[in-house]
């Protein structure tokens, strides 16, 4: 039975739950916008990385380089889209 529950994945799951709980502090405690956003950015991106590395096996084959290049490119475009929009539409710069 134990071989069906690899330690790495169980630990990954426990860590995701802990990170979710940490993110919830933003709701249950009285935080400033700045510290709240810092906590959320950290917990969200660590959790996303956890999924990609532990559960999606991104680094296991010879395609590792292509896969990571693709992910980083996707994230770069996502951040440029989001922060570019914020700069122009919300922060009025």
């Amino acid at each position: 039975m134990n071989e069906l529950f690899p330690l790495k994945q169980v630990m990954g799951f426990v860590l995701s739950l802990v990170l979710t709980a940490v993110a919830l502090l933003v709701y249950f405690t009285d935080m400033s916008l700045l510290s709240g956003m810092t906590v959320l950015l950290l917990t969200a991106f660590i959790q996303a990385g956890l999924q990609i590395v532990v559960f999606m096996h991104a680094g296991e084959t010879n395609d590792k380089k292509s896969i990571y290049t693709n992910i980083y490119y996707g994230i770069l475009i996502a951040l440029v889209t989001i922060f570019g929009t914020l700069l122009v539409m919300v922060w009025d710069m």
């Binding site: 889209t81 989001i82 919300v90």
Partner: peptide
């Protein structure tokens, strides 16, 4: 099979961008 998996990762890259536009619109 290896190519199909790599191809799906590239599709997921496009999905990241799709949701990025939705988040950009949401924050606006």
């Amino acid at each position: 099979n290896s190519l199909k998996i790599l191809g799906f990762w590239i599709f997921l890259g496009a999905e990241i961008m799709l949701f990025a536009t939705l988040f950009a619109a949401y924050f606006t």
